[in-house]
Simulated scan of single mutants.
Amino acid sequence: MSKAASRSVTIAPEKRQAHRSKGQRYFNSLVKQIENRRGLLAQWEAFTPVFQKRYVDEFIPLKQASMDAQAKLVHRLDALHSDKAFNATERRLISRLIRELMQSLIGTHGDPTLKPIQDRHADTASGTPAEFDIDSAKAMMAQMFGDEFVDGLDTDSPEAFIKHAAEKFEELRAEATAKAQAREERRAKRKKTPKQLAAEARKEAAQAEVSQSLRDVYRKLASALHPDREPDADERTRKTALMQRVNEAYAKRKLLQLLELQLELEHIDQTTIDGISEARLAHYNEVLREQLGELDRELSDVGARFRATYGFPYGPLTTPERAMEDLDAEIAHRGNMVRGIENDLRTFDNITQTKAWLKALERRQRD
């Protein structure tokens, strides 16, 4: 790669910002932002395999170990609950602790004996559903949607009321959809005004000019690199590889890559870049703006896939370092959890120490 390839495609890099035109400043800003997004994508590409290895080698086994330890703790607490050495208050505290532990175990841990334990310690007092007030619900719907909405609503039972209300909601939704579709159809049939037609024509012409500017850069590169015109085998191989890069960049409308290739191949120099006309610059800026948007969407997709696969980081996906910090914290948390449960299980071998442990737990929860 030539020395030119290491240079950024920047207009008048030696000039102060104030001495560049608005279009030139916008061009340089877009180039800088694109390079930034490229760097972030490269960071994630290099970082993900490193993260994955640590996730699989360290976190997954430790996660399973912590769940196994919690399941073991549930079984031990369940056994303590039936011990007559504990009074009613202590047994209620044990049941509450079992329920808290079960929240993260049921559905994720494969121990089939956990479900009966969960059933034995279910909080029936808080599990009783509140009585459904049909009159209040009907009044609220009338206030929100009008009296005609609740006319004829079945009030014989909560189930019948909810079913009837759901049907009424569906009728409203279907009616609103039909009205919106009718409006769109009327709008589509409306004859466009001369002003609207002129605006559409200008937009189409501008898009055509933008595409033409991109095509001009591509054609210059393709003309210089066409492998079939090269008699030397080694040079033909080199040009074939370069032409592949050119075709890929053009297919994805990546203007900056095409300009960088021109610099790399020394088809243009800094003087040529500085001399880009304002009209051509406006077209270039439109393509670069599109490219920046594509890179932002690509970064968003990378973040969504990463979070869906690993669940880290818990907050905004900003940098690879943030994701690794969250993984470090979770590994430390799981390790502390396993060690803490092991200590608790040893405590439970002694009734006196267990009672003191329960009393301390109750005090902490009360505070």
Results as ranks from 00 to 15, higher is better:
5 A>D: 04
7 R>E: 06
7 R>S: 02
8 S>Q: 11
12 A>N: 11
15 K>H: 09
15 K>L: 15
15 K>G: 01
17 Q>E: 11
20 R>L: 15
21 S>N: 04
24 Q>H: 10
24 Q>P: 09
25 R>K: 13
30 L>V: 10
32 K>G: 11
32 K>L: 15
34 I>W: 13
35 E>G: 11
39 G>F: 14
41 L>W: 03
42 A>V: 00
43 Q>L: 10
46 A>R: 14
48 T>F: 09
52 Q>N: 09
60 I>Q: 01
61 P>M: 04
61 P>R: 12
62 L>Y: 03
69 A>W: 09
72 K>W: 01
75 H>E: 02
77 L>Q: 06
78 D>E: 04
87 N>I: 02
88 A>E: 11
91 R>C: 07
92 R>L: 10
94 I>G: 11
97 L>W: 07
98 I>V: 06
100 E>H: 02
100 E>D: 10
102 M>A: 08
104 S>F: 13
105 L>P: 03
110 G>D: 09
111 D>Y: 02
113 T>V: 13
115 K>G: 03
117 I>L: 13
119 D>I: 15
120 R>E: 01
120 R>T: 06
124 T>R: 12
125 A>T: 09
125 A>G: 01
131 E>P: 14
132 F>I: 01
134 I>Q: 00
136 S>C: 07
137 A>W: 05
141 M>D: 02
142 A>K: 13
148 E>R: 15
155 T>C: 14
158 P>C: 10
159 E>G: 00
159 E>R: 11
161 F>K: 08
161 F>I: 10
163 K>I: 13
164 H>W: 08
170 E>F: 05
170 E>H: 02
171 E>Q: 14
173 R>W: 12
176 A>L: 14
176 A>K: 15
178 A>W: 05
179 K>V: 09
180 A>D: 09
187 R>M: 08
188 A>Q: 11
189 K>W: 07
190 R>T: 06
191 K>N: 05
192 K>F: 07
194 P>H: 02
194 P>R: 05
196 Q>E: 15
197 L>K: 05
199 A>I: 01
200 E>H: 09
203 K>G: 03
204 E>M: 09
206 A>R: 11
208 A>I: 03
210 V>K: 03
211 S>Y: 04
221 L>Y: 04
224 A>E: 03
225 L>H: 03
226 H>K: 11
229 R>K: 04
235 E>M: 14
238 R>W: 10
240 T>Y: 08
245 R>W: 06
245 R>F: 07
247 N>S: 05
249 A>M: 00
250 Y>L: 00
260 E>C: 02
262 Q>E: 01
262 Q>N: 02
264 E>K: 03
265 L>T: 00
265 L>D: 03
265 L>Q: 03
269 D>V: 04
272 T>K: 14
274 D>M: 15
277 S>E: 11
278 E>K: 15
279 A>F: 12
282 A>K: 07
288 L>Q: 02
294 E>N: 10
297 R>A: 14
299 L>V: 06
299 L>M: 05
304 A>F: 00
305 R>T: 06
306 F>R: 07
310 Y>C: 10
326 D>M: 08
327 L>W: 02
327 L>F: 04
336 N>G: 15
340 G>N: 10
341 I>V: 06
346 R>C: 00
346 R>P: 00
352 T>F: 12
354 T>C: 08
357 W>A: 04
358 L>Q: 06
360 A>G: 10
